[in-house]
């Protein structure tokens, strides 16, 4: 049983005329999006990194002065910065596995041909299409200490919870909100991946007498590796750069517990016009993300070799 396709190593070692033709083809195929990505993402990033080495009056029309690593040094001395890093990591360590496991569970459930599956998928996906501002306002009202969710809790005998107004529950509440938004979205990618697993594997597994759990771990997961890598990386990145619910609902509070790095970056650059501190924190956020994504690629492979 040959599983996934072989890599294209062989043709890569081919003679140079063919290699040159391939290179030319690759350039033509890549050019439009790579040029846009370089111009609209990477060059502004370099500008931002450069800004992190400068300092000046926030928002001033006068040019800033070069200060080297001074902005970073100030950050490293600030307790609220370290709290921000810590909360960012705590939030991500919980939210990413949670979303992926639930998205995977729902994807498996809704790709079994149950009646109405298309409708259920669409409904679960819907929250992703609600504009962030709208969904944050909605959840802000739902989670109010005297809002509808607490209404339900007290109706079944559970005391009302403070949710977003408590330093101990705010991270959990934001995880709830972003999971409502994200799970259905990531589920769609996993469903597409599940549909791509040829039925023969499941048939073979059934003939071997494997139960559903063993089939899941020995067939589904290995054959789902590529879409799973995508969802893992993309979900992690999207949660690291998330700030809209924080901006609308908590402004980083209570007591700095939801002051995630990306919100801080937004607050510094948009509210306070302080591009210098904002950029410095962006550099740190990027370093953290690069480290994590590298580990994820190591764990699941780049997808080329398997």
């Amino acid at each position: 049983m040959t599983s996934t396709p072989k890599a294209v190593q062989a043709s890569r070692r081919n003679g140079s005329p063919r290699g040159r033709r391939n290179l030319l083809a690759a350039i033509v195929f890549l050019a439009p999006s790579v040029i846009l990505i370089v111009l609209l993402r990477l060059i502004p990033t370099i500008t931002a990194i450069n800004q992190s080495l400068h300092q000046g009056i926030p928002g001033s029309l006068n040019p800033p002065s070069f200060v080297g690593g001074q902005v970073f040094a100030q950050l490293f001395q600030s307790a609220s910065f370290w709290q921000s890093v810590e909360q960012t990591l705590i939030f991500n360590v919980i939210v990413n596995p949670l979303q992926i496991i639930l998205a995977l569970a729902l994807a498996v459930l809704l790709s079994r041909g149950l009646p109405g599956s298309r409708l259920w998928r669409t409904i679960i996906f819907m929250p992703a299409a609600v504009p962030m501002a709208g969904s944050a306002i909605l959840w802000g009202i739902a989670l109010e200490p005297s809002g509808p969710i607490n209404g339900v809790l007290t109706a079944v005998g559970i005391p009302a919870q403070p949710f977003l107004t408590s330093p101990h529950q705010v991270v959990g509440s934001i995880i709830l909100i972003v999971s409502w938004i994200g799970i259905g979205y990531w589920m769609m990618f996993l469903i597409a991946g599940l549909n791509d697993i040829p039925d023969v594997y499941y048939e073979a597994s059934r003939i071997d007498g494997a139960g559903p759990l063993r089939t899941f771990f020995s067939i589904t997961i290995p054959l789902l590796r590529r879409p799973l890598l995508f969802v893992l990386v993309a979900d992690t990145v999207s949660n690291f750069v998330l700030f809209a619910p924080v901006q609308i609902l908590t402004n980083g509070g209570p007591q700095g517990q939801s002051n995630f790095l990306m919100y801080n970056i937004y607050n510094q650059s948009f509210n306070l016009s302080n591009a210098y501190s904002g950029s410095a924190q962006l550099v740190i956020l990027l370093i953290i993300m690069i480290a994590i994504v590298t580990v994820q690629f190591r764990l699941l492979g780049t997808g080329e070799d398997s």
């Binding site: 990505i37 990477l42 931002a48 990306m262 904002g278 994504v293």
Partner: peptide, 29 residues
Amino acid sequence: VIPFRGRSATFAIIVLSFLVPFEAIAIPL
């Protein structure tokens, strides 16, 4: 699909590009 020299490097650039939060570079852009 196309085998060519510099494929991994190009892919790395693509990955790097979506790590950058767009909002963080929106003002200079």
